[in-house]
């Protein structure tokens, strides 16, 4: 119980720290929303009146305080770029990103576990060598390029998937929504799968060298049972730790992938918000994003302790 309280405190502190850092980092960047909105048509008088309207003319400390108070009341304010509530923008973007991330993780694991296990057992053969080579390739490919290739080959030339955009389940049905997310999910999944495959392979190799595996085999336990029940379960701890870290990086990866596939998710919102110095929106996204990542790791830590009683928290 004590553990849960201190951990929750640390969680809140981490979110506050990240958001405050972002607040001041955006102040340091040259150009404010008024400058960006007016562009090359602006003049000092227009800038002044727009800054007034956007509440940018208040002193920095006061703006920070106002912001902090409203966030504590779960009010993220109104986006400057989109002139609508930040919470409304996030509410429509969050499901897309979560759906995409979940699909990407599932795909990555579905690719990595069988491939990793396959390459870790038995002798070297051309198939295993090819998989090893492909994992290198998968890790090296930039995702915007991979995304473009997939769009060209699968969406444009074959027409199996839409080339971009998101189809809302409520309007186009779940099948269409899933189809519009599969290519981006694959784009996100391939580099992750490449890393995970190597991880699975390394962990499996390590476990397979253990004495109890030899004992199990000599007792007459079948190969499949040994690999999947005994070895994979013990390698699983390492694998899930790496997978959890990958999950965090995945949220970062969505920024590029959502741009390439024109998906209305959190990553794209964040990029637009930063480029336009849309402070309320950036702040909202950072608070929610940080809270999501921190609490994900928190839950994951608890889960690990439950999965493996050897891990104990003080």
């Amino acid at each position: 119980m004590r553990y849960v309280i201190t951990k929750s405190g640390a969680l809140l502190a981490a979110v506050w720290f990240t958001a405050t850092l972002t607040f001041f980092a955006l102040q340091v960047l040259p150009g404010d929303p008024a400058v960006l909105i007016l562009g090359t048509e602006g003049d000092p008088a227009m800038l002044e009146s727009l800054r007034e309207q956007l509440g940018l003319s208040l002193p920095l400390g006061q703006r920070y305080w106002l912001w902090l108070v409203s966030v504590l009341q779960l009010d993220f304010g109104v986006s400057i770029r989109y002139s609508r509530p930040v919470s409304q923008l996030m509410a429509s973007a969050l499901p897309v990103t979560l759906f995409l991330a979940a699909l990407a993780v599932t795909t990555a694991l579905a690719l990595a576990v069988p491939l990793g296990v396959y390459t870790s057992v038995g002798r070297a053969n051309p198939m295993r060598a090819a998989i090893g080579l492909l994992t290198h390739l998968g890790m090296a490919m930039p995702s915007f390029w991979l995304g473009m290739l997939l769009i060209q080959w699968i969406a444009v030339e074959r027409g199996w998937f839409p080339a971009g955009g998101f189809f809302r389940p409520s309007a186009a049905g779940w099948g269409m929504a899933l189809r519009s997310l599969l290519l981006p999910a694959l784009t996100l999944a391939i580099p992750r799968a490449a890393i995970l495959t190597r991880m699975v392979r390394a962990s499996m190799k390590q476990v397979l060298a253990e004495d109890y595996i030899r004992t199990a085999r000599s007792k007459g336990v079948s190969r499949t049972r040994t690999y999947f029940l005994h070895a994979l379960r013990n390698a699983g701890l390492n694998i899930s730790t790496v997978a959890a870290i990958q999950m965090t990086q995945l949220l970062v990866g969505t920024i590029i992938v959502e741009q390439v596939f024109s998906l209305p998710g959190m990553g794209r919102l964040l990029l637009a918000a930063v480029l336009q110095r849309d402070l309320p929106l950036v702040q909202g996204l950072v608070v929610v994003g940080a809270a999501m990542i921190v609490s994900f790791h928190y839950v994951f830590d608890l889960l690990l302790g439950w999965l493996d009683p050897r891990i104990r928290f003080e």
Binding site: M148, I151, Q152, A155, V156, G159, P162, A163, G164, G165, Q259, V260, F261, S262, R268, A272
Partner: peptide, 18 residues
């Protein structure tokens, strides 16, 4: 008016008829 931030992606969407 579809919002497509990337020019290359827009061309591909145009070619696919979207």
């Amino acid at each position: 008016f579809a919002i497509v931030p990337d020019d290359n992606a827009a061309i591909l969407s145009l070619k696919s008829g979207q």
